[in-house]
Simulated assay, not measured.
Amino acid sequence: MARSVGKKSQYIQSLSPGQAVDDLFLLAGANQAQSKNGPYWNLTFQDATGTIDGKIWSPKSLEYPVLEPGCPVRVRGFVESYRDRNQLKVDQMDVFEGFAPGTDLSDFLPASATPPEVLMEALEDLVTEHMRHKPWKTLCRKVLCNEEIRARLLTAPGAKTVHHAYVGGLLEHTLGVARACMALCDVYPDLDRQTLLAGAIFHDLGKAWELSGGLANDYTDEGRLFGHIQLGMEKLEPFLARCPRLEEGLKLHLKHLITSHHGEHEFGSPVRPKTPEAFVLHFADNMDAKLNIIDQAYADMDKTGATWSPYMRFLERNVFRPEPTPDNAKKQNAKAENQCLLPLKA
């Protein structure tokens, strides 16, 4: 099978009954069933905006003896309405073994609201702004500019399911943790700002190898066997070895920040935090993850107008959306941004 080609232009969220469809989707589900006219396929297609069910009826279904979820497909057909829900009647479907190089995965999978390239640039800006010790700056830039590492970071999710579990999620989480750490350095000026920033940038680096990403977003073999903390240390070690001007004590502290950022042994931390910077990184990491979980709960609650979430297993509680304090300045800014700017008459 070939790899998919072409740029996506039709999105599931905007499809309407009677509309012709000819575009790329991700095959998210496939199971075969039997009707009086022969076997048929029940399919689920996915893109970044949602999912839609589809059918391939007999005898066309016989052209597809096996269909495996997780591959890109080009679907030609049209949209039907079935029980007040959109459904795709598939006339032709081309199945590909994978996405072509350069394909924007955020077209097909849930993704960060901010493009990963923008997140990466913001992370690099923090290095420029806060790294005054040249060996620290050199290390961070060499790691972030490494071709393999950069490519993985730009698509990696932040977790399998719990928080930031979408394309660009790892970078979004890393940037959030780094910004929180820098803000706390303003409150506690005795903190080692530069070592803390390096720890924040690299604390979850191993997740880019721990998780497969894509539709499955499952743990890789090395992820299951070693975990992201050890994987991250293995990826960093060659860079640290080639950075002789970085003091050994700073290298030691960076390794401690990474290996202790989960905080407690029961949460998968090989060691517990033993420096002020390690405590700050642990709490910033925990805070950013939990607030993302709550943000996702709020997004679901917005669809129904609920003020309480269902019970959330990872937080061990329901969460409540309180009434916000009125912010007139925010309303005025929003009004100004939405005003139509018309040319002045001469």
Rank of each mutant, 00 (worst) to 15 (best):
K7G: 14
Q10T: 08
I12S: 01
I12Q: 06
Q13G: 12
P17K: 03
P17L: 00
G18W: 03
Q19R: 04
A20F: 12
D22K: 12
L24N: 03
L27T: 01
S35W: 04
K36H: 09
K36T: 09
W41Y: 08
L43D: 09
L43I: 10
D47E: 07
T49K: 08
I52D: 08
G54P: 05
K60E: 15
K60L: 14
K60Y: 13
P65S: 04
L67N: 01
G70K: 00
P72V: 05
G77C: 04
F78K: 13
S81K: 11
D84L: 09
D84H: 05
D84K: 09
N86T: 05
L88V: 06
V90D: 00
D91G: 07
V95W: 05
E97S: 11
A100V: 03
A100T: 03
P101I: 04
G102K: 03
L105R: 06
L109K: 00
P116Y: 02
E117K: 15
E121G: 02
E121C: 08
E121M: 10
L126H: 00
H130W: 09
R132G: 10
K134R: 13
V143Y: 01
L144H: 10
E147C: 11
A151F: 03
L153I: 07
V162H: 11
H163F: 02
H164V: 02
A165T: 07
Y166H: 10
L171V: 07
A178N: 03
R179K: 15
C181L: 02
C181F: 03
L184C: 10
D186Q: 12
V187C: 12
L191S: 05
L197R: 04
L197H: 00
G206F: 11
K207T: 11
L211P: 08
S212K: 05
S212I: 04
Y219E: 02
D221M: 13
D221R: 14
E222W: 08
F226M: 14
L240E: 04
L246P: 06
L250N: 10
L254I: 05
S260N: 08
S260Y: 05
H262F: 14
E264M: 10
E266P: 01
F267S: 13
S269D: 06
P270E: 02
R272C: 14
P273L: 02
H282K: 11
N286M: 15
M287K: 13
D288P: 01
L291N: 08
D295C: 08
A297H: 01
A297V: 05
A299D: 10
M301I: 01
A306M: 06
P310T: 07
F314D: 15
L315T: 00
E316R: 15
F320H: 13
T325G: 07
K330H: 12
Q332A: 13
N338D: 15
Q339S: 12
C340E: 15
P343C: 04
K345N: 14
